[in-house]
Simulated assay, not measured.
Amino acid sequence: TCGAGLLDAAASVQLATGPAAIITPIGTVTPGTAITLNGSASVALTGQIVSHQWTQVSGPTVAITNASTAVAGVSLPSSPATYVFRLTVTDDFLPTARTGSDTVTVVAAYPVSSGGGGGSTSVFWGIALWAWVLAVCWQQRRTRRLT
């Protein structure tokens, strides 16, 4: 009934003054992936959203297919990079239409490999190591008794 996440203040102010562009988050993807830019959850407080426009804000230049629709597509190159896309929506408010916009960041990166564990060992290697430790301890104990 209360707590963090109940109200998005920035989205509320935007919605009170014009339409809110709402984009489905994407996050990190593998380079060379085709991604979907989805702004179909965008809303207008009064009236309807009459236009959508996707643009690229930063990153290596890519082509946006269906850039004037709520759902657009991008095929990312095979090299790692960070991309930022903006969706601008326009409502049918009279006497003057209003706009709202939001951005989404996409990171194209290869998965990080674990790097391995430093080599292969077996049960026999572990037993041999413990036998060596016990032999060293026994030898030190024996040396102390003799002195």
Results as ranks from 00 to 15, higher is better:
Arg141Val: 12
Gln53Ser: 13
Arg142Thr: 09
Gln139Pro: 00
Gly115Lys: 09
Ser78Glu: 15
Thr17Asn: 14
Ile49Arg: 06
Ile22Glu: 06
Pro111Ser: 07
Thr36Phe: 08
Thr55Ser: 11
Val123Ile: 10
Ala10Pro: 04
Pro80Ser: 08
Thr96Asn: 15
Ala72Gln: 04
Tyr83Gly: 02
Thr55Glu: 09
Trp138Ser: 13
Gly126Tyr: 14
Ala81Lys: 01
Gly59Pro: 05
Thr96Tyr: 11
Gln53Asn: 12
Arg141Met: 11
Ile26Gln: 01
Gly32Ala: 03
Phe85Ile: 03
Ile35Ala: 03
Arg145Cys: 11
Cys137Ile: 15
Phe124Thr: 11
Ala72Lys: 02
Thr143Ala: 15
Gly47Val: 10
Ala108Ile: 00
Arg142Tyr: 12
Gly47Ala: 02
His52Met: 12
Thr36His: 07
Thr147Ile: 11
Ala131Asp: 04
Trp132Met: 15
Gly47Phe: 01
Leu15Arg: 09
Ser42Ile: 06
Thr90Asn: 03
Thr147Arg: 13
Trp138Gln: 11
Pro25Ala: 03
His52Tyr: 14
Ala20Asn: 10
Asn38Val: 01
Pro77Asp: 09
Gly119Asp: 11
Pro19Arg: 00
Thr143Tyr: 15
Ala97Tyr: 04
Gly3Tyr: 10
Ile35Val: 14
Ala108Pro: 07
Ile26Ser: 01
Ala34Cys: 06
Val123Asn: 10
Ser114Trp: 09
Leu87Glu: 07
Trp125Cys: 03
Arg142Asp: 13
Gly5Lys: 06
Ala10Arg: 04
Leu76Ala: 07
Ser68Trp: 08
Ser122Cys: 07
Ser12Arg: 12
Arg98Phe: 05
Ala63Asn: 08
Ala70Pro: 03
Leu94Met: 14
Ala10Gly: 12
Ala67Asp: 00
Ser122Lys: 03
Val104Trp: 00
Asp92Trp: 00
Thr96Val: 15
Phe85Gln: 07
Ala70Glu: 04
Val136Gln: 13
Trp54Asn: 07
Thr46Arg: 14
Val107Asp: 10
Thr61Arg: 13
Leu45Phe: 01
Ala67Arg: 06
Gly3Ile: 02
Thr147Ala: 10
Trp125Tyr: 12
Ala11Ser: 08
Ala97Arg: 06
Leu129His: 00
Ala10Glu: 12
Thr121Ser: 12
Asn66Gly: 06
Val107Arg: 06
Gln53Val: 00
Ala4Gln: 13
Ser68Asn: 15
Leu7Pro: 00
Val29Asn: 08
